[in-house]
């Protein structure tokens, strides 16, 4: 159970905007780690810096001890980092099937692709019913399932999910969180970004609290849930 992912003192920018101001965190193999924080805190930027969509100007990102700070996104993905972005990023004019195929772009064995697709359909039978439909015609919940399913086609070593519950009906949120838990039990390491801090901390092993580009608190998820500041700011408990 070593550190699968480790960030040390990461600074990221958008032009002149200093979005991450020295983030340090790690994710152990087999863990669910949750990143919570209010809007604009830098949660998405942290995931983007890991997956190489933006690059840290300072600091280091290590995957399995390997420096991937400046590795391009498509290479990071092929090293087993799945990133389901905020807003889902479904290809609106590819069919469900083609979207899933794209998730397995770096996989070359057709048998393996087929196996994984079966697995995805087992998790989300709804997707199987919609297989020939364009991604853009799915409902919000179905799109989220597709986004997660597409992330799984890679069979990633670590799956990063950016606000998977956003905009979903409560029933669907439960389905998504159950799925995340199940995936983790089957061995996938998870880095979960959520505004729904209560749910996130309920399934996570550990958590980090982000505020304006810095980590202000980290602890076991259970302890964070009881933390007074967290309760007040993120759980809405006075």
């Amino acid at each position: 159970m070593g550190k699968l992912l480790e960030l040390t003192n990461v600074h990221s920018y958008y032009g002149h905007i200093h979005a991450l101001k020295g983030i340090s965190l790690y994710v152990n193999e087999g863990e669910i780690v949750s990143l919570i924080g209010s809007n604009g805190a830098g949660k998405s930027s942290t995931l983007r810096t890991i997956s190489g969509m933006i690059h840290a100007r300072e600091g280091k990102v290590l995957l399995d001890q390997k420096d991937i700070t400046h590795t391009e996104a498509h290479m990071v993905v092929s090293m087993g980092v799945g990133h389901v972005p905020e807003g889902r990023g479904i290809f609106p004019k590819l069919t469900v099937q083609e979207n899933l195929d794209m998730g397995a772009f770096t996989v070359n064995d057709p048998k393996l692709i087929k196996e994984r697709m079966e697995l995805v359909f087992e998790l989300f039978p709804r997707l199987k019913e919609r297989i020939t439909q364009f991604g853009g015609t799915l409902s919000g919940g179905e799109q989220q399932m597709l986004a997660i399913g597409r992330g799984l086609m890679l069979n990633p070593r670590i799956l990063m999910l950016d606000e998977p519950s956003m905009g979903l009906a409560p029933v669907l949120v439960d389905v998504i969180f159950d799925t995340i838990k199940r995936l983790n039990e089957q061995g996938t390491t998870i880095l979960l970004v959520e505004q729904n801090a209560l749910m996130a901390l309920s399934i996570a092993h550990r958590g980090y609290v982000l505020q304006t580009g810095s980590i202000v608190l980290t602890d076991d998820a259970a302890k964070l849930k009881k933390n007074e500041m967290v309760q007040k700011t993120y759980l809405g408990i006075d």
Binding site: G52, A73, P85, I90, F91, P92
Partner: peptide, 20 residues
């Protein structure tokens, strides 16, 4: 398929492991 994916959403395509 990758060409169509890049045409529709470049950042997402790169997250699929496609070299844009």
């Amino acid at each position: 398929k990758a060409i169509r994916a890049v045409a529709q959403d470049r950042p997402s395509a790169s997250l699929m492991g496609i070299n844009v």
